[in-house]
Design a protein around this nucleic acid. Sequence first.
DNA 1: AAATAAAATATGACCGGTCGTCTTAAATTA
DNA 2: TAATTTAAGACGACCGGTCATATTTTATTT
Lengths: 209, 209
Amino acid sequence: MNSGPSARRGPKPKPDTRDNLIRAGLQAIHADGFAATGIQGIVERADVPKGSFYNHFASKEAFGAEVLDAYSDLGLERLRAFLANSDLPPLARLGAYFDDRIKAFTAGGYARGCLLGNFSAEAADHSPLIREHLVQHWDAWTKALEGCLAEAQGQGAIDGRLAPASLARFILNSWEGALLRMRVEKTGSALIECKSMILETLLPSRRPS
Amino acid sequence: MNSGPSARRGPKPKPDTRDNLIRAGLQAIHADGFAATGIQGIVERADVPKGSFYNHFASKEAFGAEVLDAYSDLGLERLRAFLANSDLPPLARLGAYFDDRIKAFTAGGYARGCLLGNFSAEAADHSPLIREHLVQHWDAWTKALEGCLAEAQGQGAIDGRLAPASLARFILNSWEGALLRMRVEKTGSALIECKSMILETLLPSRRPS
DNA sequence: AAATAAAATATGACCGGTCGTCTTAAATTA
DNA sequence: TAATTTAAGACGACCGGTCATATTTTATTT
């Protein structure tokens, strides 16, 4: 039968060329933006001949989508790790995540922001492929947050009339907006204010009488 | 002494060449992003010879800063117009502004977003000049919003313990984040949710007992 | 008032460099 | 040998920016 994956032909691919390209591309695109990043710079960073790039990726656009995937997967894993920490009540986990990110962005000089937001601004309008990936990733991050909020609501830490799904979307969107402001001001204020506005004002809110 | 501005020499500049360039640049940069927009395309749209561009602008970066200024001035004027409408209570003015923007973005196919946000993502890290302009413009928009919120607070429509300055920053940042989400989803949902979360949940909130 | 110098703009060719992509040759295996 | 993949670099187009030159206007000198 031998119905397994058909054996490949051709020279052995250097096993980590592809990963090296993704890694180099992630660094470069995160630092400089998608449009401003050239294939040339990426292949040089990855120490890969320029022509080899298109053996692994159909286009710059497809490459960008994979870089985005890699970034999102990593970040989502971290988010989930924080939100799953059962040593803390749900909202404290969210607070800890915020604090961790604030610390990281502070260490990074308040630059670069979140690649999801960056791609959304730069590529969502022009690349249907990247846009589709963005939809999935934003949604996945939202879902992770939503789970935590639902848990908090179950414990009475959040007004029962607020829908966790809407809250999660709003919180994530607001955080991304705060990241834009942070990059402009080169200060952590926007992030700190975002955290406190959400955790101290929005979530504990009660409807007006 | 004749310390006045020394009279300029040289041929009268074609009076609207500069404005045409700004206008063409605004359209192009708003649609395609700063890095992805070339000088060539701009001068072609404005029907200006390429060499003339650098008679009016020191660099693409300086041009971008002026385009940003033009965009911000226009948008700020609109924001102020809505927030000054004394026929409505303060928060209703803000709601009307949101509705107007939602309508406009809907008509535009949920694309392009806000140039302040776009430049913040693309250029704030790399261009000190543009970053400085961004600081001013974000701040001006925030101040406009803050005035309206303070007025609302004076009328008791907002919890007295919330600082209008912080609220204004958070609201503007959140709106910019919602615009990112909008461009990904090609839906007005994020904007609608942002409006309602702010006007119905955040602002009327009372501290937990 | 006339002549000249200075300054700014108009214009398009042109610079080195980089862009994303494609073609071709080498390598490997069926 | 045929098929297939990789390595490698060539490719034309375009990038932001510069330059020389012509032109137009004003300031200064005579």
